[in-house]
Amino acid sequence: MRHCGGVNFLTLLSCDELSRHLNRPDWRVFDCRHSLSDVESGEKAYAEGHVPGAFFLHLDRDLSGPMNGRNGRHPLPDPCCLASTLGATGVARDTQVVAYDDAGGMIAGRLWWLLRWLGHDRVALLDGGINQWMKEGRELSTELTQSVPCVFDIARRDWVVSTESVLANINKEGFCLIDARSPDRFRGENETLDPVGGHIPGARNRFFRDNLDDKGCFRHAAELRRDFLELLAGVEADKAVMQCGSGVTACHNLLAMEIAGLHGARLYAGSWSEWCADPARPVER
């Protein structure tokens, strides 16, 4: 998506578009590769080769806050801490940010949403990620990126839904809760990440990988719009609340809705891992 009269990428951009703007001083690129089974693998992969000029951000250290056993596996980071991290890399209000990973945007989508949550709209995902970048034979770098730090100003938006609101919504049905986990985990089967299997009563399922085509790029906006409108079944887009296992892949669905022109959905950041931490909360299977 672009703004008329300027180059403001707000959802996706191609490898060709990134390559044309790579050396601009008002652009910042972030490598967000991560594996839940090997949390250091992303940083190792970055050291072995990344998009030239990219900085590395770690899902656990940079894009999440500390866990306390009740707030899920990937709590939201403190806004001031995240702003300090971004400012240290030179992200200012007029900076175009680009995020990528090697998993179809599964992790990079988290950075996309976090920046918008803090009031920074000029952020986009590299469609196809570093896999597509390498497939096209583009250059990789092993150099550590340096930047002149600046102040990142926060204008935080009210886009987060609490566990208390989700619990109250089970009876009120004031919003539509959409779970981004795989269908089997949604049903309560094959749960390996959280101690309890199942889903929040009343939630609907939209596996985040259904947003991607067989090349690992996002499907066309019209297809995504059709799918989400069918899932919402008459519910307005701004009455949708996204969740997943820990609040990460839910951001993938939020990005997909934005690509589809369906605006205003919010995030239940604690998601299933926070919900199931209290055995008193109801579970549906």
Rank of each mutant, 00 (worst) to 15 (best):
A45M: 08
L177V: 00
E230H: 12
R2F: 12
D194E: 10
A155H: 15
R138D: 11
L82K: 06
D278M: 03
L86I: 14
L118T: 11
H21L: 11
V241T: 00
F152W: 06
I200P: 02
G137H: 08
V166G: 00
R156W: 08
A45K: 03
G137L: 07
N253R: 07
G49D: 02
S182Q: 12
W112Q: 10
D31M: 08
A237V: 08
H199L: 04
D184P: 01
S162I: 08
P66S: 14
D213Q: 12
A233Q: 14
S41R: 09
L177N: 02
L59Q: 11
S41Q: 11
S14T: 15
R219W: 05
C80H: 14
C176T: 15
C217E: 12
G72P: 02
V29A: 02
T163M: 10
H3M: 14
C150Y: 05
G105H: 01
L167V: 11
L262M: 11
G202F: 02
R138A: 11
F56K: 09
G216W: 01
L59Y: 08
G174L: 07
K135Q: 13
A83E: 13
S271G: 04
A88D: 04
V97D: 05
L167M: 11
W275Y: 03
L118Y: 13
R209Q: 13
D227T: 12
C217F: 05
C4M: 14
A108H: 13
C251I: 03
P79Q: 07
R70C: 07
G87M: 01
L22Y: 01
Q243P: 03
C4F: 14
I200T: 03
H58L: 05
N131C: 12
G202C: 04
P149C: 06
A180N: 03
E258A: 14
C176Q: 12
D16P: 06
D78A: 14
R93M: 11
W272G: 00
C251Q: 07
V39S: 15
G245Y: 00
E173S: 15
G197W: 05
C276A: 08
S271R: 00
L10G: 09
G188T: 10
A180M: 05
D238E: 14
D94F: 06
V97N: 07
V91L: 13
S165K: 15
L140F: 07
G202I: 00
C276D: 03
F218T: 02
C217A: 12
L140P: 06
M67I: 13
A92F: 07
N169F: 09
C251H: 04
V91T: 08
F55Y: 15
K135G: 13
N131V: 13
I259T: 08
H263V: 11
H199A: 01
E48Y: 07
A237Y: 09
G53A: 11
V196A: 05
